[in-house]
Amino acid sequence: MVRATILSVVLVPICLVWIYPFIWMVSASLKTNAEVFSGLGLFTDVVRLDNYVRAWNEANVGRYFFNSVFVTVFSVLIAVTATSMIGYVLGRYRFRGKKVIIGIFAAAIFLPEGYTIIPVFDLISKLGLTGSLWGVTLAEAGGAHVVIILLFAGFFAQLPGELEEAARIDGAGFLRIFASVYLPLAKPVIATAVILQFMHSWNDFLLPLVLTLSQPDLRTLAVGIYAFKGEHLTDWSGMAAASTIALLPIILLFFFLQRYFVESVAGAMKG
């Protein structure tokens, strides 16, 4: 206990230095543009909430917030469902072609993604999903998700087979064994997957921008933040305010989800 206290005392200043740029961003959201560039100080005489007013009105944060939530929630659902399913069979079963599939996914990590915006854009157009939130959602959920699949596969591979046998004796089929026996045990990986996919969907910029060209109302928050960036001048304090609004959900999500997976895992792992 004493050791933990000492550790905390050491960690607090380290963490504060670590997140200083973040704190600075929040403080920048309360300054004028010129004050932003006056240096690393955090405090000014006047706290300017007008940046938030501007962020809310000009960056249309209210409307974009909803879009971001929609795109993020559904892309997380799609991605987590798809990856947990493939992770489950890759981790627990042997079948013809499994190694090929794993090899292809592993290679996907390294093959260049450099210039994919044009094909993805064409694809969404051909699917008739341009200018709809579903198009953005699907594009955000798409991809190889190698990390998440590996995490799921690794996790499921370690679970004991007895669970499956017992469920089978009770008459459960393949689908039910997955959905009600194994998947609930995978909470830690699900939490990780949700955080990773959430970050990606919430922060992505270019894809939602180009996919909503014809429907500005469908833009996401990340696109809205960059609305403060201009040809000759960027409204940094407005951008900082919009960023702060946009980042709070992620930080809260992380704070609560990580606690959840940390505390609930140990029991599930024992069996």
């Binding site: 854009f121 157009s125 180009v210």
Partner: peptide
């Protein structure tokens, strides 16, 4: 009016579809 990079990306892609 968000600067040239936005014009360069969005207009060429918008023309595609």
């Amino acid at each position: 009016g968000q600067g040239w990079p936005t014009v360069n990306d969005t207009v060429t892609l918008g023309i595609r579809n």
